[in-house]
Amino acid sequence: MGEGEILDEQISSLAAPFVFFVVIAFQFATKRLQDLKKGASKTDKEMQLRGEIKQLLKEAATYSQPSTFAQAAKLRRMAAAKEKELANYQAHLTQEVKQSYDLYLKVIFITKVLIHIVLALWFWSSPVASVSQHLVQPFGRLLSGKIWGSTATVSRLGSYPG
């Protein structure tokens, strides 16, 4: 064996784990972005608005006398206005987050497709399976992949020695 053949064998033996880890990395990246897209973290403004709403409703609940009904109603209206503001803010934030993650997901998808094409072209001539000669005796020519090619491939499978 020459030094070039040993180097080729070492590279080909490292190729399978490399391909595996590249594909797994893209899968994890896609999954992580989809999870982040679904559950965007709560911002400080959102938490502040929730706290203000809770405080206003708590204050409104303390005014239970008929003489303080107007104050309680005013606090409830303020809380309702804050809830509407919170809903608008959440809708705007959700739309922003969705657009940014959609862009990242599209970039990852395009990159993933290109990587798969490059890997398919890189390993196009590499055999993916080895089948015993007696199992493919009648179907060797169909299974060889080079139906109209050289007879060396066909005879290697053992169906049509030539």
Rank of each mutant, 00 (worst) to 15 (best):
residue 2 G to W: 06
residue 8 D to G: 03
residue 9 E to I: 15
residue 9 E to Y: 12
residue 10 Q to K: 14
residue 12 S to F: 11
residue 12 S to Y: 06
residue 13 S to R: 04
residue 13 S to Y: 10
residue 14 L to F: 13
residue 15 A to W: 09
residue 15 A to R: 08
residue 17 P to H: 09
residue 18 F to R: 09
residue 19 V to N: 04
residue 20 F to Y: 13
residue 21 F to Y: 14
residue 22 V to K: 06
residue 22 V to Q: 12
residue 23 V to H: 14
residue 26 F to S: 04
residue 30 T to W: 06
residue 31 K to R: 12
residue 32 R to Q: 10
residue 32 R to M: 13
residue 34 Q to G: 02
residue 34 Q to I: 00
residue 35 D to R: 13
residue 37 K to E: 05
residue 37 K to T: 03
residue 37 K to H: 07
residue 38 K to L: 12
residue 39 G to T: 15
residue 39 G to F: 08
residue 44 D to Q: 13
residue 45 K to V: 13
residue 46 E to M: 12
residue 46 E to C: 08
residue 47 M to P: 00
residue 47 M to L: 14
residue 48 Q to S: 06
residue 51 G to N: 11
residue 53 I to V: 13
residue 57 L to R: 07
residue 62 T to W: 01
residue 63 Y to H: 13
residue 63 Y to E: 03
residue 64 S to R: 07
residue 66 P to N: 08
residue 66 P to R: 08
residue 66 P to K: 11
residue 67 S to L: 10
residue 68 T to G: 04
residue 71 Q to D: 14
residue 71 Q to P: 08
residue 72 A to F: 08
residue 73 A to V: 00
residue 74 K to A: 12
residue 75 L to D: 00
residue 75 L to S: 01
residue 75 L to V: 00
residue 78 M to A: 11
residue 80 A to I: 00
residue 81 A to T: 05
residue 84 K to L: 11
residue 84 K to S: 08
residue 85 E to G: 04
residue 88 N to V: 14
residue 90 Q to R: 12
residue 90 Q to F: 01
residue 91 A to L: 11
residue 92 H to E: 12
residue 93 L to Q: 09
residue 93 L to Y: 09
residue 95 Q to D: 14
residue 110 I to E: 00
residue 114 L to A: 14
residue 115 I to L: 14
residue 117 I to C: 11
residue 118 V to G: 11
residue 118 V to T: 08
residue 120 A to D: 01
residue 121 L to E: 09
residue 126 S to Q: 07
residue 128 V to Q: 13
residue 129 A to M: 12
residue 130 S to E: 11
residue 131 V to I: 14
residue 132 S to W: 06
residue 134 H to S: 12
residue 134 H to V: 02
residue 135 L to K: 10
residue 136 V to D: 06
residue 138 P to T: 11
residue 140 G to L: 02
residue 142 L to H: 07
residue 144 S to R: 00
residue 148 W to C: 13
residue 148 W to I: 15
residue 151 T to Y: 10
residue 151 T to R: 05
residue 152 A to R: 11
residue 153 T to Q: 03
residue 158 G to P: 03
residue 158 G to H: 07
residue 160 Y to I: 08
residue 161 P to M: 08
residue 162 G to S: 11
